Amino acid sequence: MTTSSGSPQPAPMVVPRFFVRQRITVMVNRYEIRAADPDGSEGPLMALAEQKRMKLKEEVIFYADESKTRPVFSFKARQRLDVHAEHDVYDEYGSVLGTFSKQFGASLLRSTWNLSAPGLQAVGRERRPVIAILRRIWDLIPYVGDIWVPFVFHFDFVDTATGQPVLTSERKKAIRDRYVVTVPDPRVDFRLAASMAVALDALQSR
């Protein structure tokens, strides 16, 4: 969709920059989505995500706050336990905001994802192919790869039609996974961007 001037129609909710921080508990993975303050520091909580483990269909629900009384968006796999399943992102009323999926073949050497939104098709890859290969070697080491990943890796998503950047996720060194997410393309709704950013951590080993 475009405006009368011919420029792309912006998404309903646009957030150019935010942070994702992982929390780990016994039965669920939790992720804090925080706004970026003008000085670049972490701001207020925008959403709290929960990924329940051992579900046949992968699903992550994002809540408005710590009370978890109001789910505001979510993503869910269409297929059961499928490494290249399509995942739909829903708003709080059940309308689809966009989709994403992992390219299984390409991801054997370098993790690659498809991302789509109204008027947009994008592809995202690990930024550094050498780090991607080293991560895979590390994961083959018995026990060690499941305990600690020493590599800091990033993802860059570009418009498949123009090659222009639409989303980046940069992992920062921390005890728990922490990411800085930048969204230069206003066609990417914040809820879709936050879902994709969480999936890059929660589903990366799938």
Rank of each mutant, 00 (worst) to 15 (best):
A35W: 02
A77W: 03
R17T: 05
I33A: 06
V198N: 00
S195T: 08
D146P: 03
W148G: 03
S101Y: 03
V180I: 04
S67M: 04
L109A: 08
T162S: 13
I24D: 07
A197C: 09
A117T: 09
K68D: 01
G145V: 09
Y179C: 00
K57A: 15
R176E: 12
P10L: 01
Q51G: 10
Q121D: 12
G98Q: 03
F153I: 03
N114I: 02
D177Q: 07
R23N: 05
S195A: 15
W138M: 08
R110K: 12
A199V: 01
V144T: 14
A36F: 00
A122C: 06
L192C: 13
K52M: 09
D37N: 14
W138A: 07
V198Q: 00
T160M: 13
F153D: 12
G163W: 08
S41R: 09
F190M: 10
G105T: 13
V152L: 14
F190H: 10
R110D: 05
H84V: 08
V130W: 11
V130R: 11
R110Y: 06
D65I: 06
I147R: 14
P8G: 00
H84A: 14
T25R: 11
F153Q: 14
L97P: 07
V72F: 04
G98N: 04
M46T: 01
D201G: 00
R171D: 04
S107Q: 07
Q9N: 01
D185C: 01
H84W: 15
Y31I: 04
I137S: 03
M1E: 14
K173Q: 05
E42Q: 14
S111Y: 02
T69P: 04
V183L: 06
R30T: 09
D82W: 11
Y63W: 15
I33M: 05
R127C: 02
E59N: 11
G145N: 11
L45R: 05
E92L: 12
F104Y: 13
P12A: 02
H154E: 10
A194S: 12
S195R: 09
V89D: 05
K68T: 12
L56P: 10
F62W: 06
A47T: 00
Q204D: 14
D146V: 11
D156N: 14
E170L: 00
E86H: 15
I33V: 04
R187D: 09
R30D: 11
V198S: 00
T168R: 08
L120E: 01
M27W: 14
A77N: 09
F157H: 08
I141W: 07
I137R: 06
P129T: 07
A199R: 06
A77F: 05
T69R: 15
D37A: 11
Q164L: 13
F155S: 00
A117R: 07
P118Y: 01
R110Q: 13
F155I: 00
V198M: 02
A122I: 03
E50N: 13
A194K: 06
G124E: 05
I33G: 01
T168G: 05
K76S: 06
P38M: 00
R171Y: 01
Y31G: 03
N114C: 06
N114A: 11
D39P: 08
S107H: 04
P71R: 10
Q121I: 06
G119N: 01
F19G: 01
A47S: 09
E66H: 02
E58H: 15
P129H: 09
F104T: 07
D185P: 02
F100I: 09
T182S: 08
M46S: 04
K102T: 10
P129C: 05
G145T: 08
S169D: 04
V72W: 04
T69W: 13
R127K: 12
